[in-house]
């Protein structure tokens, strides 16, 4: 290839330039995550039950706690994920944000277990749906991950394992938001253990698949 060819390339690239809305990257990433989450919502509605039907048993406070945890995780991972797709932007210590919702829920879980009589603690931890919970969150993270990978075709991740991990955690958190609409459990111990585990499993998927899926 020659410099003349490069001149030609530059002209043809410039000829197709269109104005870009500010916030285009944010909107695109959000669109990818929402599209994947809607797919997950549809899939879980078919596999499990009508969304929100379990709120009648759990009561609104337990439902709100689960939803708030998942939304906080999705927001924090989403912001860091976007930053990791923008060269020149640092993540560094901001990764610690992710520990805040997890630590709050873990602390609540410990207090909750301490207040229970020992023979009820195992029940509080395992509930009756822990397998469904982990499987649903890890499984439903896949369509969200697909949406994220789509959005990243216009972004420029320079650290693929890190971006892969964040993409996985974000997809798991979004899947957890969706799963919270179906979840019949009521304890913080359950939330701290199985939601977190599902999100971490999704993170592992992203970490392993990221470098292949996100390469450009």
């Amino acid at each position: 290839m020659t410099m003349i060819a490069t001149e030609g390339l530059i002209r043809s690239l410039a000829a197709e330039v269109k104005p870009l809305r500010r916030g285009a990257a944010q909107m695109r990433l959000l669109a990818g995550i929402v599209a994947g989450s809607l797919f997950a919502l549809l899939a879980l509605s078919l596999l499990l039950s009508a969304p929100l039907s379990a709120v009648a048993y759990t009561g609104v406070p337990a439902f709100t706690m689960k939803l708030a945890f998942a939304v906080a995780m999705a927001t924090a991972t989403g912001i860091l994920l976007l930053a990791s797709g923008r060269p020149g932007q640092r993540i560094g210590m901001r990764l610690l944000w992710l520990g805040v919702p997890a630590a709050l829920v873990a602390a609540t879980a410990v207090m909750e277990l301490m207040m229970k009589a020992p023979q009820f603690r195992e029940q509080a931890l395992l509930g009756s749906t822990w397998q469904t919970c982990v499987l649903a969150i890890a499984g439903m993270s896949l369509p969200v991950l697909a949406g994220i990978v789509w959005a990243f075709r216009r972004l420029a991740p320079t650290n693929l394992p890190l971006t892969g991990l964040l993409a996985g955690l974000a997809s798991g958190s979004a899947a957890a938001v969706v799963y919270a609409l179906f979840c019949p459990e009521t304890t913080a111990a359950f939330l701290a253990t199985w939601y977190t585990l599902g999100i971490l499993a999704a993170g592992l998927i992203g970490l392993l698949a990221g470098p292949r899926l996100l390469r450009w």
Partner: peptide, 30 residues
Amino acid sequence: EDLVQETLIAIHQRRESFNPALPFTAWLHA
């Protein structure tokens, strides 16, 4: 020159990833 062209295409296709609050040269070098 191949690498220059490949990078120019990447800059063009992925310009959404530029954050106007940050320096352009840092983005380009990354």
